Simulated scan of single mutants.
Amino acid sequence: MDEKGKGTDRWGAAILNLSEMGTNLDSLQKVLMKKAVFVDEETYAKASLSSQQARTIKVLEQRVNSLEKELDAAISAAARARSEKRQAEAAQRAAELRALEVTKELENTSKVFELHMEELRAKQDEISKRDSDIKVLEAIIRTLGGKESHTAG
């Protein structure tokens, strides 16, 4: 049996003992009230003490019950807190995984963008070279066209 079980058994036994003592003292007090008419001081003092002890026992029983309820509530609250903590940790792990996925997607998108930019630059360079070639050819044509018009005329 674990420590918690032993402690609970002890509390239960103690409460049962206190309850029985209280019942016995109540019975004794009732008998004394009904049956005793004249008693000596010592007997009266003992009965009075018993009555006081019975009242104290009842107060202690109530306090023990109250403390047990508080303990049960604290245990339940701790269990809820542990459960909420586990849920929060699971949500955090899921968010971290999603953040990693998004980061990888961004990196991949960035790489694809870089490749497209390199391709666009290469096409731009090719276009610029062809444009330059066209201008050279136009200049040659103008030059040749100008010589033909001079030779023809």
Results as ranks from 00 to 15, higher is better:
Glu3Met: 14
Lys4Ala: 13
Gly5Tyr: 12
Gly7Val: 01
Gly7Asp: 08
Asp9Ile: 14
Arg10Ala: 13
Arg10Ile: 11
Trp11Asn: 07
Trp11Val: 09
Gly12Val: 05
Gly12Cys: 07
Ala13Tyr: 12
Ala13Trp: 12
Ala13Pro: 00
Ala13Val: 03
Ala14Phe: 12
Ile15Phe: 13
Ile15Tyr: 08
Asn17Asp: 13
Leu18Arg: 03
Leu18Cys: 03
Glu20Arg: 12
Met21His: 11
Gly22Pro: 00
Thr23Glu: 09
Asn24Lys: 02
Asn24His: 10
Leu25Ile: 02
Leu25Lys: 05
Ser27Asn: 11
Ser27Leu: 08
Ser27Met: 07
Ser27Val: 02
Leu28Tyr: 10
Leu28Cys: 03
Leu28Met: 11
Lys30Cys: 01
Val31Thr: 09
Met33Cys: 06
Ala36Gly: 06
Ala36Ser: 05
Phe38Ser: 04
Phe38Ile: 08
Val39Met: 06
Val39His: 01
Glu42Gln: 10
Thr43Ala: 04
Thr43Glu: 03
Tyr44Ile: 00
Ala45Asp: 06
Ala47Thr: 03
Leu49Asn: 10
Ser50Pro: 00
Gln53Trp: 10
Gln53Glu: 09
Gln53Tyr: 13
Arg55Thr: 13
Ile57Ser: 01
Glu61Arg: 15
Glu61Ala: 04
Val64Tyr: 12
Val64Arg: 02
Leu67Arg: 03
Glu70His: 08
Glu70Val: 07
Glu70Met: 08
Glu70Gln: 12
Leu71Gln: 11
Leu71Phe: 12
Leu71His: 13
Asp72Arg: 08
Asp72Ala: 02
Ala73Met: 09
Ala73Thr: 04
Ala73Lys: 11
Ala73Trp: 09
Ala74Phe: 08
Ile75Arg: 10
Ile75Asp: 07
Ile75Tyr: 08
Arg80Thr: 02
Arg80Trp: 10
Ala81Arg: 09
Arg82Asn: 09
Arg82Trp: 07
Arg86Gly: 00
Gln87Gly: 03
Gln87Leu: 13
Gln87Met: 06
Ala88Asp: 00
Glu89Gln: 06
Glu89Phe: 14
Glu89Val: 02
Glu89Pro: 01
Ala90Tyr: 04
Ala91Tyr: 04
Ala91Val: 01
Ala91Gln: 06
Gln92Asp: 04
Arg93Met: 02
Arg93Thr: 03
Ala94Met: 06
Leu97Pro: 02
Leu97Met: 11
Arg98Asn: 07
Ala99His: 09
Ala99Ile: 05
Ala99Ser: 09
Leu100Asp: 13
Glu101Gln: 13
Val102Gly: 00
Thr103Gln: 14
Thr103Leu: 06
Thr103Tyr: 09
Lys104Gly: 03
Lys104Asp: 15
Lys104Glu: 15
Glu105Gln: 09
Leu106Asp: 02
Leu106Thr: 00
Leu106Met: 08
Glu107Trp: 04
Asn108Met: 04
Asn108Tyr: 01
Thr109Gly: 12
Thr109Glu: 15
Thr109Lys: 11
Ser110Val: 00
Ser110Thr: 07
Lys111Phe: 07
Lys111Val: 05
Lys111Tyr: 07
Val112Thr: 14
Phe113Glu: 10
Phe113Ile: 05
Phe113Gly: 06
Glu114Ser: 05
Glu114Trp: 03
Glu114Val: 06
Leu115Gln: 15
His116Ile: 00
Met117Leu: 11
